Amino acid sequence: MRYSARALPAYRFLPGRDPHPTADPRGHSVDSAPWFEIGGCAPADWADCAPYLYGVDCFNHGFWWESHEAWEPLWRGLDSESVQGHYVQGLIQAANALLKRRMGRPSAVARLRRETRRHLEWVSVARYMGLEVVAWRAGIDHCLAQPGAGFPGIYLKA
C-alpha cells in the first residue's frame, strides 16, 4: 500500500556502498530540488502531510535513509519538545536504526533502539497521526532487539 503519489527513489542508499543521493553526481536525487520545505503540519492533518506520507512510503519499502530525509524537514518545522516532535523523531530514529542494522552496526542499533523507544513513549494515545503507536512501538522494539527479525510496516488508518 502506498500513501503518496511521489515515485520511490531509484535505489535504497547504503552509505559506503552507493553513490550519495544528493552529494554524488551519480546520486538518485542529485539534480532534484529539496524533497520538502521545512515546515510542520497539525497532527490532525496527517493525511494531507506530504513529507509524512512519503516518509511512510519510503520506510515501508526499505528506503531507510530516504525516509529519514523525507521526515527531517517535517521534524525541523515542529517544536522538538512537543508530542508530535518526539513522535516524528522516533520514526526518524527507527529508520536510522534499521539502516545501521543493514550496515552491520549492532552498537548503533542498540543506541538508536533506546532513542526510538524514548521518543515514541511521549505518545500516550493508542492512535496518533494514523498509526497504532503502542502496537507499532512494540513491533519496532522487537525488530531492533532481534537482528534477523522483519520490520513492522507503518500502516495508517483514518
Results as ranks from 00 to 15, higher is better:
I154T: 03
D45T: 06
A42Y: 13
V125S: 09
Y128W: 13
Y87M: 02
A158L: 11
L98N: 08
A23I: 13
L99F: 01
C49E: 00
G40L: 05
L112T: 00
A44T: 08
Y155E: 13
V134A: 15
H28G: 05
G104C: 06
G85A: 05
A42Q: 15
L98A: 04
Q84Y: 00
A126G: 11
G90F: 04
R26G: 08
S107F: 09
F59V: 00
E132L: 11
L144E: 00
D141N: 13
Q146H: 14
L14M: 06
G62S: 01
W64D: 04
E81T: 15
E66K: 07
G40V: 03
R117D: 11
M129A: 12
P43V: 05
A145S: 15
A33N: 03
Y3D: 08
A95R: 05
S67L: 06
A70R: 07
R127W: 10
F63W: 03
L91V: 04
A10Q: 11
A135Q: 13
E66L: 07
W46A: 09
E66F: 10
I38L: 07
W122L: 09
V30R: 15
I38E: 10
P73I: 07
E121K: 09
G40K: 05
C58Y: 08
P15C: 03
S29W: 15
A149R: 01
G148V: 02
D79L: 03
R113L: 12
L78Y: 03
R113S: 14
S107H: 10
E72K: 03
R17S: 13
D141L: 10
G130D: 01
L53K: 00
L131N: 02
N96A: 14
R111G: 13
A110K: 14
R105Y: 12
K157M: 10
A145M: 12
H86L: 10
L98Q: 10
W122N: 14
P21D: 08
V88A: 09
P15K: 05
G27V: 13
P19E: 04
Y3L: 12
G55I: 01
V83W: 10
G150T: 13
L98Y: 10
V134H: 12
W46I: 12
Y3N: 11
Y52P: 02
T22S: 06
